[in-house]
Amino acid sequence: MEAEKRSRGLLKVDVDECKGCGLCVEACPPHVISMSEKLNHYGYRTATYVGEGCTACGICFMVCPEPGAITVLKAVYRASDEPGRSLRAEAKEVACASN
């Protein structure tokens, strides 16, 4: 939990769209993307967020040749009393689902 708190960003990879070219791994400034051990449906190793350290700079998205393989999310901080807006749990789910 502490690790996630520190991350300003979050990375979502669509494993069916990623072709495993590895450009994002090379491009990521904080080096928080790696290639998966598991192969996807089409036989590619896919980009995987290591789970922490994303700064939401968006460079991985920019170098990725697939239109929707990578989605970059950025943390915004709001007062906790704002009702019904907590997406933190949702973001966590996203992170789990994509890795």
């Binding site: 769209e17 943390a75 007062a79 933190r88 973001a91």
Partner: peptide
Amino acid sequence: LIAEYEVVQGKAKSFYDTYERKDELQHQ
């Protein structure tokens, strides 16, 4: 304060959601 995540970079709207091409490959 709590953290919420907003999409800052994602698939452009000018792309189709799915691509009308070969059966299995409409997603890439």
